[in-house]
Structures are given as C-alpha cells and as structure tokens.
C-alpha cells in the first residue's frame, strides 16, 4: 500500500518560530543539503537542492528544507532530486538508507543508483523470467535471493521504458 506523505516543517522566520516539531532551531542555511553516496561513486556531496522524493518501505516521502531528523529505509524505486533551478534528476536505487540529520542535511547511502534511461526493458524482462524460475526452487537460500531480485526487478520494470 502506498501512502503519499509530504511532511513539511514550517520555515523559521527571522525571530519568530511559528511552528516547529524539533526543539532545536534550524539556524543553518535555508536550502536542503543533499549527500548521495554510493560505495564506488559520490553523486552528490553537500549540494543544495530544493526537494528530494524518497521511495521508502513505508511509502513515498518528499523531503524539503528544515525537515525533522528521520531515518528511513529505502525500497527499490525511483529517487527524484529537484534542484533549485527546478530540474529533476531521477535515479533508480535498489535500496539503502536515508537520514535527515539535525541541521538540514539529508544523507542517502545506497549501493547502486542509475538513471532510468540506462536500463534496457528487454533485459529486465529476461532477468525477471530467470528469477521467477529460481524462486520455484527447493533450496531456501536460492528462493530468498530470487525473491529479493524479483522485488528489485519488478520495481525496475515500472521505471525502465
């Protein structure tokens, strides 16, 4: 079940805190700082962005500036990064962890992230058929691995055109 949740914390004006969920004041700069790190590549390192949409296991989240600190586990899906100029960058991630730190920083650790146009829809179909065959095996470990593959591949199928 998907739940579109857009959490927005009110921006802090000069001297008055209109509404704050966290007790500490966000005195850092107003823009959200995104760090998206993969083991073999760093995609974003403390870059200022407008909004980030995360595919989390509990639903999709949109993170804006001054979000309260959260820890979210990501499910295989599309990560959208909307920069200050309004352009949207999309990456398909196979899973990972997203943390909003106190101080307006969003840190995403993912193992793999690729742009949707780098995928070939036909290969995805072939891989799904292969994984489904293995999911019917009798060995528990093989079945578990195949099910994880299917989870990622099925999410990928929606993304790869």
């Amino acid at each position: 079940m998907f739940r579109q949740t857009f959490r927005q914390v009110a921006r802090q004006s000069n001297s008055v805190v209109r509404r704050a969920y966290a007790t500490e004041a966000a005195t850092a700069s107003e823009a959200l700082k995104l760090s998206l790190a993969l083991p073999h590549q760093t995609l974003y390192s403390e870059s200022e962005v407008e909004q980030v949409n995360l595919p989390s296991i509990n639903g999709d989240l949109g993170i804006l500036a001054n979000h309260i600190p959260i820890v979210e586990q990501l499910r295989p899906g599309l990560l959208e990064i909307i920069s200050k100029g309004g352009e949207t960058d999309q990456y398909f991630v196979s899973g990972g962890l997203a943390t909003v730190q106190p101080g307006n920083k969003l840190t995403i650790s993912a193992i793999e992230a690729f742009k949707p146009d780098q995928f070939d829809a036909q290969s995805v179909k072939d891989l799904i058929a292969d994984a489904q065959k293995r999911a019917a095996s009798s060995d528990e470990a093989v079945v578990a691995e195949a099910n994880i593959e299917l989870e990622v591949l099925e999410a990928l199928q929606h993304v790869a055109k």
Binding site: A37, Q41, T42
Partner: peptide, 16 residues
Amino acid sequence: VSGKEYGIANAEVFKN
C-alpha cells in the same frame, strides 16, 4: 576517494 565519502556519509548518524 569515493569510498571515503561513502564512509563519511555513513558516519554522520554516529556523529550526531
């Protein structure tokens, strides 16, 4: 270089 950045991003939670 990328591995170090990845480790730093990972350690943010422990810093806080």
